[in-house]
Design a protein around this nucleic acid. Sequence first.
DNA 1: CGTATAGTTGGATCGTTGTCAAACCATGGG
DNA 2: CCCATGGTTTGACAACGATCCAACTATACG
Lengths: 127, 127
Amino acid sequence: MRLLPQPATENIQLTEVLRALSDPVRLEIVARLAAAGQMNCTVAGDALGIHKSTASHHYRTLREAGVVRTEQDGRLKYMSLRHEDLESRFPGLLPAILTATSLHRTPTTSEGTVSATAEARASAGSR
Amino acid sequence: MRLLPQPATENIQLTEVLRALSDPVRLEIVARLAAAGQMNCTVAGDALGIHKSTASHHYRTLREAGVVRTEQDGRLKYMSLRHEDLESRFPGLLPAILTATSLHRTPTTSEGTVSATAEARASAGSR
DNA sequence: CGTATAGTTGGATCGTTGTCAAACCATGGG
DNA sequence: CCCATGGTTTGACAACGATCCAACTATACG
């Protein structure tokens, strides 16, 4: 369970977090992470219908901004929200954003079927 | 007291708000607006040490994102935060961001302090 | 070892953005 | 009516970002 490099909590910058979350694809990833707890990269890419290299770019952006942590377990990498770190540095910010995304959810690309698959796979891969 | 065109409350998009606030200069404008209540455009530009056309661009970005309202009174235009509109659409978001900016403020918002200006300009200019 | 799987990296493309400068527009005062 | 003042618009420029494809790396499994 190797943890990929990420900024220390005290070095997380507000503008970078906001920038990371200002992209619809990344906001969607974060919303799904909040619901699922964690997520493997391929699942995220498949669910969002984007190329895997594009997905990889978004994971990196989120990780470097300090929004998510990535742990490698074998061939898989699992992302999860840095909830406590963000809360301690920007109290209330992430909850407010997650509330907003759930309030104004857009009927995204085949949300129901794909997200069901994504969740099934995500939970099957977790332990 | 003419009100400049702005998006209706229900049309304010989260990603656009986050995008608008992800620029250090605009975040500084918003922080000062929160402290001062309202602000005239030239004052903001002078205080931030940026060209007036650049400032104008940022005002427009903030207004079009739904973050600020602009009212024209004679030759002057006053900006103020759309606090209630944002609160009704994204509860807790703006307060959390303002809290974050005041928690991790570089120098304080007193006028005349130019170091904040220099830093904002430096990071913005080094894109 | 060889192969399949998971993800990254580099290159190419194309649109967006922050900045300044200069010209422009609008408003109120003399 | 003209001019000074407050802001906007346009143009140019350099940097950034999102995306895809193809090639690459790394890990596990047989």
